[in-house]
Computed example of a mutant assay.
Amino acid sequence: MLDTLPTSEKPAIGTTRQGLRQRGVLGLSADDIDFEKEVVHVRRQVKMVRAKLCFALPKGRKVRDVPLPSSVARAIRQHVEQFAPVPVTLPWDDPPPAETPVEAKHRRPRTYSLLVTGRERKAINRNYFNSYVWKPALATAGVIAPLEEGSADGARVWEPSREHGFHALRHFYASEELEAGESIVSLARRLGHSDPGFTLRKYSHFLPRAGARGSAAIDAIFA
């Protein structure tokens, strides 16, 4: 499905190989990528508050580092060579004008050179991304039906695709990491979960072959 995306949007998909949430992917800056140490610093997200965009800490205020796979590093390098990071300035945490000096200090605009921006070289609204990038890619790949006339007034609507939403890529990352034998504690840290038990409860059903590994281990001991 990656091949169906506009070139400028591919890193938004590629970085989910690290389990980032969509808003965290859209908030990644060039300075967050450490190619030498092979890590990505998850420091912020682009979120919407009362129909306006702003920067904020990641969900749950979980600032963290996640490994940078070589395949993702290559995709990011190629993207940066073709599309230079764009400096974007947004308020911090809450867009409306501050009413007190303390609020003004906290909400002061901050500038980051984002890896992925829209046509107007601004931060991407995730609703725009879902409607004009993600769902068209799903349709082109044959995952959902193409856009059709959906009502008597001629409105064009996409087939509902909750189970195929952008967040499904995060689920895929988690399930593959667990299937490969990654520690649930390490995975929880990478996903930004405060409780590894939550991570296990949420993703254990993605492990249909997990029991077979345990049996194989016992067989190997007594063989």
Rank of each mutant, 00 (worst) to 15 (best):
A188G: 13
F172I: 00
S204K: 05
T117C: 14
R190G: 10
H167V: 08
H171M: 02
A216F: 01
P97C: 06
A56W: 12
Q45H: 13
T4L: 05
G60I: 13
A174W: 00
L115D: 06
A174H: 02
A180D: 03
K37E: 14
L114K: 03
H193K: 10
D32E: 11
N130H: 11
L2D: 06
S186P: 07
P97V: 04
N127T: 14
E38W: 09
K52W: 07
Q18V: 15
E81M: 07
D94V: 01
K202N: 12
T140E: 15
L178T: 00
Q18I: 15
L53N: 06
G211S: 08
V66L: 09
G60K: 10
T199W: 07
R162P: 04
R126F: 00
V86P: 02
H193Q: 13
V80W: 04
A73K: 08
V133S: 01
R107T: 03
S175A: 12
A188P: 12
A30Y: 01
A220Q: 14
M1I: 11
P69I: 00
L138Y: 02
G60F: 11
P146L: 08
S71R: 11
V42Y: 04
F172T: 02
I76F: 00
K135G: 01
A56D: 14
Y112C: 11
P67D: 03
Y203F: 09
S8M: 06
S131V: 05
R50K: 15
H171W: 09
T199I: 03
P67K: 08
P101K: 04
P95E: 03
L115M: 09
